[in-house]
Design a protein around this nucleic acid. Sequence first.
DNA 1: ATTTGGGTTGTTTTT
DNA 2: CAACCCAAAT
Length: 739
Amino acid sequence: MKLDHLNDRQRQAVTTTEGPLLVLAGAGSGKTRVLTHRIAYLIKDKGVPPYQILALTFTNKAAKEMRDRVNSLIEGDAGSSVWVFTFHGFCVRILQAEIDKLGYQKGFIIYDEQDQQSLIGHVIKDLNLNDKIYSKKMLSSVFSDAKNHSLKPERFLSETSQPDPVIQAYRLYQKRLKEANALDFDDLLLKTIDLFEAFPDVLEKYRDRFHYILVDEYQDTNLAQYHIVSMLAKKHRNLCVVGDDDQSIYAWRGADIRNILEFEKDFEGCTVIRLEQNYRSTSKILDAANEVIANNRGRKAKKLWTAKTGGEDIDVHESDDERDEAYYICSRIANGVRAGARYDNYAILYRTHAQSRILEMMLKSFMIPYRVYGGTSFFSRAEVKDILAYLRLFLNPADDEAFLRVVNLPPRGVGGSSILALMAHAREKELPLMSAAGDPGEMPARIAAKFFPFLDMMAPLYAKLGTMPLSEFTEELLRTIGYDAYLRSDKKENYETRAEIVEELIGYIKEFEASYSDSDGDVLQAFLTNVALFSQADAVQEDNGCVNLMTLHSAKGLEFPVVFLCGMEDGLFPASQSRFDPEKLEEERRLCYVGVTRAKEKLYLSYVRERMLYGQRSSMMPSQFLQEMGNALPVNRSQPKQVFREPPQPKKVQESFHSYTPPKPTSQFTYQPVKAEPAKVQKRDFDGNVGEFVRHKVFGRGQILSISGQGSAKIVEIRFDNGVVKKLAAAFAPLEKES
DNA sequence: ATTTGGGTTGTTTTT
DNA sequence: CAACCCAAAT
């Protein structure tokens, strides 16, 4: 194994194979390289059988990349038998083999956030809780907190003295999950721990097996993950964790920075190696990053340096508003491309998804191909959810959330009251909804009959399941339920887009089953798990010929020659909720650090004076982080604001899911770069004037007091004859001039 | 039963 | 200015 292209520290990190090892790897210091070489070194030079190695990552993409790179380092496909998984994927794998020991069935399904919310909604109803105090949101975050922070959520809840209703709700929630044979995301970790604790022989089995364990992004592990790792590593103690406390950006979802800060205490006699040479960015960029992060307290001492001295100045730009900002960014990109750059050299990073919209519009009018990661992704489209809900019901008829979603979709005359009756009946009999519908007992016949069409339709499909490839089965399913006709009849949204999404999903299933070789598993379950664990970052693909748009969070681990960090304003970034909470502020600052260090050659920082927030214009101040980077920014940065000609009117965004890529290595979904759409004629422009009288379909006659905004954002303020003053969107309100 | 509309929320970030 | 939730209309 040749290691001479590694620097001394990297090589040390690769070859220190025995005992606990903490690698503090600064941004761009070659952490993935170390991990992959370490795995290859273990196999090739140390003769470790690949199946004794376990590597844990946070995203599927990271896992896939690691697998690929290991395989290219060693001949043959020995690398493929290394277990490289995300934490969640690893837990699923174990639970699929062992979960029956915990009283669940093997074909469990994973509830996503929406299912979770909706289930909590039912719990609130059933317990008659005041949903003003105990909202879905509040409860779900408490539950998640409890699960993430503690091995015994119940104990956590009482120790943090949660009010009784919360504890009751928690119990009922867990009970319902179990009845539905479902696990939420946090359960995946928690149940694995439960399993290991309750069945020492099972733990022993895995403990024996994994002689070498590697953990990527260790700074982002939560207590549950920490626990899993330490249980597994207890025997052989060959645990290598790699991370950077400065890049810990997931505390809000339970990541505990102490896991990395106290690793040395937790694993006695551990070796610590610091990787401080950055191979990614120019020193101009790195200086800025070092400046901001220096404002955080309680971090491990380290000083990143780079051999790439100098480089281009960082650009700081002020715009009037977000439209202007978008224009500025687009024109920079257009110039760059004209000068020979590729579109995929560029990334536009922002704090919140909401910021992407205006950027998208402007990119379209510049005819710049782009890709948005995250946001309303393909898998959260209603059509996809519909179909997946059906499929879930086939894997697991106890899935009540899925049942509720599809029982009346397309509409087949099953309404709220029937559902309510069924739910009561099901509760009484302690049956899942599906079974309860098939076993109506003393339910009024009139109501029971409502469910017959649905049941009759499903029954033959159950019989067909498994007799044909999943994709064909899905097509059969869609034909049977008449989904296409439903899409056509639903005039709300345009049929073409939605039909296209259905096609896309079928295509995705085909890809999946083609690459699914393990004949020993249930394809349907594997597929649903794959989808549930699919994440934003997984879709990222370099060299796609597109400008990349994403949140700062999903940018972690990536790098781009040119990075735009936009919306650098107090209240947005750092977010308003974080500004006065020192811990949260530090996390925002780390996020800023992550953002800055994504850039290899050129960094643009931009902020606006005025931005639309909560539906109204508010004036903004430059982010405090800009001040903090001050020394690394060019001195003459109060450049005169560029004056643009009238920026092109952004075209109406054509509804589109901005692409996604299947996680399988071979899959190659073609993505058509978004081409500019011809401007569509907007809704009619209401042309009343102040003082004139108008008639509203509902409110009656009124007088226009003021008009603001323009185009579809035009707002008219009207005092109606009954004295009520309302602000209405001119483009949408049913207004007519009073004659 | 289904649809519509108004009123009410509230926004980080995601495995 | 959304998305979401509930109430009222048909």
